[in-house]
Design a protein around this nucleic acid. Structure first.
Lengths: 226, 226
DNA sequence: CGCAATTTTTTGTTGCATCAAAATTGAAAA
DNA sequence: TTTTCAATTTTGATGCAACAAAAAATTGCG
């Protein structure tokens, strides 16, 4: 048993196990879209890359494969997933349901100081966008969303949402580097913050849903062109 | 890598790996609530029970732990989870969102012959209820739900829902044997089938949501008393 | 008798060698 | 040139022993 030795945190992986670090690094790379979809990952390569024996390396890959952050292309080949259009559509519908819920609950329970943190995340998104640092923009975007969701006090919901992001993650690769990220998200985020300030959870939910839909259109385009 | 060697099926575990059988058996026992919540599972016990070495046994436990079908009670102790009330509430809200979606989409895409299969599952539920065979009733109930959800053609959604059921599963143990299962589910299922027959997906969704809420009340009672 | 410290046992993790199966490569045939 | 098939290499799975850490049992003290 490795991973989650800390029952309080659904996401962490605080436990001391060796393969945990490999898991964490791989997961973040996936989330950031740093992998080329279709790229093949092997136990021995990971083991060597992280200076581990095969057992913990295999564990790390297994964990990602179970969550479908990696998928099987053959009986003995795990690759970075490349979402089909129909899969993207499916994940988007699930995101609307789940993140809509998280946004609404989060908005209902949020404490006032969260607004400052959201503002700060938004600033980071904007400045990254200005610098055309899309990777950073996407990362700050993730923080914005999960900052809001985190207010919901629903750890199971949040970890499920994170798994959906993980599934999409690799596909983000197709957005680089030629593809600029539209600023439509900015408007949605601002609407969410306004709704939050005025104590209108339903409004926040609507804004987040609009944001997800906008993102969907962008990814759909990227997938189609690729 | 073990598990899902078949990319077409999100749930199966068709691959030939040795630990897969252990995983499947454990998973079904969890889903059926055959485990006593809090029960401690160890790698060596599982290995011996299934006649395996520790590696595949550990894999099986790991897979379940990652999905939170088992949870950590300490750094070196995985136990069968015992949902708290707040966790049950959270899972229920997620189920409403996700299974509501699956029910509606499934109803929209269902072919006519599904009605017969649902009818058949319902009959099995009824006769199991008559015989006070609660385990069987719950199992047939699961089949009823997933038969409907399966029509949605949304494999990611379905596997996510299954994970939620897995999380609840062990808690069902508290329903045995003193606790009869109310027949309220029968009404909801019949309403779902009627809605399906009349081509009213929204009605089907409402029926399933009602069913989930009824089940929630029952479990809540079981948890409180225990 | 209860509680804390300590010893003993149990347990998960890791490294590694081995094996069968799959993926890849290359050669031969069409 | 393309395709098929066989040889070769790579790869994941498994068993097992050793180790450190945690859990359980036991002892000793108040």
């Amino acid at each position: 048993m490795s991973k989650n030795h800390d029952p309080r945190d659904e996401t962490s992986g605080k436990g001391a196990a060796l393969g945990d670090q490999a898991y964490a690094v791989l997961k973040e790379k996936l989330l950031r879209g740093s992998f080329r979809p279709g790229e093949k990952l092997t136990v021995r390569k990971i083991a060597q890359e992280f200076g581990l024996s095969s057992t913990p390396a295999r564990d790390a890959l297994n964990r990602l494969a179970i969550q479908h952050a990696l998928v099987y292309a053959g009986p003995k080949t795990v690759v970075v997933p490349n979402l089909t259009l129909s899969q993207l559509r499916e994940v988007t519908e699930m995101r609307l349901a789940l993140e809509g819920l998280a946004a609404e609950k989060g908005a209902a329970k949020a404490s006032p100081e969260i607004l400052f943190q959201l503002e700060e995340a938004q600033n980071r998104i904007n400045s990254a966008l200005d610098k055309h640092a899309y990777t950073d923009a996407l990362w700050a975007n993730k923080e914005f969303h999960f900052l809001l969701y985190g207010c919901s006090n629903m750890p199971i919901l949040i970890s499920t949402i994170e798994q959906l992001w993980l599934r999409i993650g690799a596909t983000l690769h197709h957005l680089y580097p030629d593809f600029a990220i539209s600023r439509s998200g900015v408007t949605n985020h601002r609407a969410a913050m306004e709704g939050l300030q005025n104590g209108e959870p339903a409004e926040v939910r609507a804004a987040i849903e609009a944001d997800i839909r906008d993102g969907y259109r962008q990814l759909r385009r990227a997938i189609s062109e690729q």
